[in-house]
Design a protein around this nucleic acid. Structure first.
Lengths: 330, 330
DNA sequence: TTGAAAGCGCTAACAC
DNA sequence: GTGTTAGCGCTTTCAA
């Protein structure tokens, strides 16, 4: 026997046919207990490992999940996708699936990659991230019947159920942050958001609004400010806000970048109120900024659920509740 | 024709044999120009895509690079591996290779995964990260003749050439940072390092030492401080250093975490000197902290070079020179 | 419950 | 330069 052992080698050692070995691996209940043990012993003795490509050729299933690695994002929150990827890899493994990466420059390129991977049986399911309304990729996937799940809602679509998706409930996150402050007796809670319209940003803003409304607190426009997701700009915006006499006891921010900018502005202004960010990035951790954590492990679990149970009954859309991480500022 | 087209379908349409189609794809120079064009037209017309698993089964090559996704690192520099992974995916694609991820909890588990992936022909080459001297994984790979390259030197090994590796020249990075300050006429340049011994940390420290020595500046022990790679600790260390009257005009730090801690300590102390960090993380970018950038794209290119040219003549070890990114503090 | 035969789609080796 | 044959390792029939 040269090279790796095959089913035939195992069969010879165990004194059975090839097929029985295959059954032991794929349908153990068909094989008599005693025979099964004999085969298992032979497998262990030879260190037999099924040839993945041969199996895939035969079964016409690659058991592989294709994930596009986005263009490198430089932002502070850039690692969210990486965390998701990690969770996916870990859990996919536990479910007998593998994660294959591919890089693409734009939506068209991504579709082209997916077509190739799919046609070549390299991957049979896919995860799409950063989807938007009227996404050309989604249309293509549906049209070509390629199984997929998106991480992110189809913001703005009339019908949100045209495809399977998993997303984090941003609204619940900012609501939890706002409640946290309200529970401490704070009343004038500000919101630092992204410029509208923004699917994710507006959703998070809504959480703040609803939390206040739930306590019967009227919305005061003076309590909100807007900044693009950039630390420097956020810092200037908050500094200016402060200068113009913003009367705020606590601040909910829709991202850690904004929270960091706000923290720095306050530190410079010598006036400090508690801040909560969003994404629970390493920076927030390092600087002791409270933040809302997106549970990428739960997202990954749901994505796999939907991916591996294509015709599953019930909802094909999942909303994951994030978790407020409270920290003492340093 | 049901399902995807095969070589046979293409052959029929083009009026040639299967083998000729295969040749057009894999060894075009063997086929006459006119025939080749005819086959190519047929391929395009049918949207033919070779079945990856069938090809792999036949050629016994998976053309796939296995990369272990490390345990999620929470540190500020945690995204270095992610950046590397991105660069690898992008460039592997351009070279006809794919990147397959796997997760492992420890070195033993990683070897077990590699064995399975390797035996099952899922992946035929591997990249190992975070290697250390006497690494059990390296020993196993060598013993089992599994092709691999490590990202990281075998620190402390007598013989550095037992396996192929690519690493970033930390020494050159801190030297460049030190030179940058020296060129501005600054003399008393401090170093904030990690506790010794530390392969990477000591290497970076050496760059600072050598840059000073090259200008004939004697090393003053009062110019150095040490802290574990944690923003909070670094901040206390620097604060204490400042209190005890450290006389420093500029500070070279062996990581962005340390640089951030130092920046914060200085800001609080109301005394500020220019700082350079290491890794060029998003935080450094956001806060305007100068930093040394590890060119993960160059690392990936070298890793692929070594991986795909197993018996390559010349050095099987590559040192990548990092790049100083100078920023104006905000 | 086990065995024999067939074939997934591809390419290496050889014949023409 | 092109076609024919064989077989990679596996699993899905179907027969015993």
């Amino acid at each position: 026997m040269t090279g790796m052992p095959t089913v035939l080698d195992v069969a010879r050692v165990a004194g059975v046919s090839r097929q029985t070995v295959s059954n032991v691996i794929n349908a153990p209940e068909l094989v008599r207990e005693e025979t099964r043990q004999r085969v298992k012993t032979a497998i262990a003795a030879l260190g037999y490992q099924p040839h993945a490509s041969a199996r895939r050729l035969r079964t016409r299933q690659s058991s592989t999940i294709g994930v596009r690695l986005d263009q490198a994002r430089d932002g502070i929150s850039g690692n969210l996708l990486d965390r998701f990827l990690h969770a996916m890899t870990l859990q996919a493994d536990a479910r007998g699936r593998r994660v294959l990466l591919f890089a693409a420059s734009d939506a068209h390129d991504e579709v082209e990659h997916i077509r190739r991977l799919s046609d070549g049986a390299d991957a049979d399911t896919f995860v799409l991230t950063s989807t938007e309304h009227g996404d050309a990729r989604v249309a293509w996937m549906l049209e070509n019947h390629v199984p997929f799940v998106t991480f992110g809602r189809p913001w703005g679509a009339e019908d949100m159920t045209t495809h399977a998706w998993v997303d984090v409930d941003g609204r619940a996150g900012t609501a939890a942050a706002t409640d946290h402050f309200l529970d401490q007796g704070l009343q004038r809670i500000g919101l630092l958001g992204w410029p509208q319209p923004s699917g994710t940003g507006d959703d998070r803003r809504r959480g703040w609004e609803e939390a206040l409304a739930a306590r019967g607190i009227a919305l005061d426009p003076a309590l909100t400010a807007e900044s693009p997701d950039d630390v420097g700009t956020a810092e200037s915006v908050v500094a200016e806000w402060w200068r113009s006499g913003a009367d705020v006891e606590a601040l909910v921010c829709v991202s850690d970048s904004l929270a960091l900018g706000a923290s720095m502005a306050m530190q410079r202004a010598g006036r400090s109120v508690p801040v909560v960010g969003f994404d629970n990035t390493p920076v927030a951790r390092a600087l002791g900024i409270s933040s809302v954590e997106q549970r990428t492990d739960l997202v990954a679990a749901s994505v796999l659920d939907l991916l591996l149970a294509p015709g599953a009954a019930g909802s094909r859309q999942r909303l994951i509740t994030p978790e407020l991480v409270v920290r003492e500022p340093r």
